[in-house]
C-alpha cells in the first residue's frame, strides 16, 4: 500500500532515516563536491550520458505542460543525489538504465520512447523511476507550489477550515 503519506509515524521514520544515512566524514566530503565553482550540479553516480537519459525519462513520467516538467524541477539530479546518499534502489536502477542504453533509447523518437516505457511498466526499474520522480517532483517548488498550489508550512493567525455550506449538511 501507499507508505509515503504524511502520517506522523511515517514522517518520523523518514526523517530519522535521513538523519543517520551517512557518517559525518562522508557528509562533509559529499557537501563539498555536489556543486562546482559555477554552481552547476556535479553528478555523483550517473555519468553525463546517463544524466541526459534520466532527465528524458523523468520528463516522460511528468512532462512540461503549462507548468514545469520533472527535469525543469531538476528531478534527475534529485535521483542522482538519492543514490549518492545510499538509496537501496541504485543497482536495479543502473541495470535498467543499461538495458535502455542497449536498446538505443536515447535515439528513439518520443512515441517509441513512450511505447518502450509502457512495455517495461511492470518492471522494478519502472517502479523505481516513477516513485523517485514522484518524490522529487512533488517535493520541489516547481511541483508542489507551481503545479499543485501548495501553500503550507507557514504562519497563520487563524485556521478557517472548510467554509463550504455544501460540504456540511
Amino acid at each position: 500500500m501507499v507508505n509515503v503519506m504524511k502520517t506522523r509515524r511515517s514522517a518520523i521514520k523518514s526523517i530519522a532515516v535521513a538523519a543517520v544515512s551517512l557518517p559525518a566524514a562522508a557528509q562533509i566530503q559529499q557537501s563539498e563536491t555536489l556543486v562546482n565553482v559555477k554552481g552547476a550540479y556535479v553528478p555523483q553516480v550517473f555519468d553525463a550520458d546517463q544524466m541526459k537519459t534520466v532527465a528524458r525519462l523523468v520528463d516522460l513520467i511528468i512532462p512540461r505542460t503549462n507548468t514545469p516538467g520533472a527535469s525543469d524541477a531538476r528531478v534527475h539530479e534529485f535521483i542522482d543525489r538519492a543514490f549518492s546518499r545510499g538509496d537501496w534502489r541504485k543497482d536495479q536502477f543502473l541495470a535498467g538504465l543499461q538495458q535502455l542504453n542497449d536498446a538505443m533509447f536515447d535515439t528513439l523518437p518520443e512515441e517509441q520512447q513512450t511505447e518502450k516505457l509502457n512495455s517495461i511498466s511492470d518492471s522494478p526499474f519502472f517502479k523505481h523511476l516513477k516513485d523517485l520522480t514522484v518524490d522529487g517532483y512533488y517535493t520541489s517548488k516547481e511541483g508542489l507550489v507551481q503545479e499543485l498550489g501548495w501553500s503550507g508550512n507557514t504562519y497563520l493567525a487563524e485556521f478557517k477550515g472548510c467554509t463550504h455550506p455544501e460540504h456540511q449538511s
Binding site: 500500500m1 501507499v2 507508505n3 509515503v4 503519506m5 504524511k6 516513477k130 516513485d131 514522484v134 518524490d135 512533488y138 517535493t139 511541483g143 508542489l144 499543485l148 498550489g149 501548495w150 503550507g152 508550512n153
Partner: peptide
C-alpha cells in the same frame, strides 16, 4: 493537501 503527493505512486 500535504507537503508531497505520495499517492501518485499508485
Amino acid at each position: 493537501a500535504q507537503g508531497d503527493a505520495g499517492y501518485a505512486k499508485v
